[in-house]
Amino acid sequence: MELPLWEVFVRSKQGLDHKHVGSLHAADSKQAIQMARDVYTRRQEGVSIWIVPSQAITASDPSDKDSLFDPMADKVYRHPTFYTIPPEIGHM
């Protein structure tokens, strides 16, 4: 009998994003939080934990990578380095 799978996200420091750190098995979300504390934050790696049922995650398909992300490749004008600012102006 296998317990359900959960994905664990940890905020390492107040002010930073929660970041995916791994997964674990637990009966419910409360137990998952306790387990996540023991497995992923034994050395003060976190100040906050999110637990998400693995089944609840929808991921993009790697084979869609081109159609999803390629349209951004030729839009260099979205980056500040595309524009030339006269040296007299200095930092902008």
Binding site: M1, L3, A27, Q31
Partner: peptide, 13 residues
């Protein structure tokens, strides 16, 4: 322990 945790979770749900 695993069985009890599972039953408890089922009951709560």
């Amino acid at each position: 322990v695993r069985e009890a945790a599972n039953s408890y979770a089922d009951k709560q749900r």
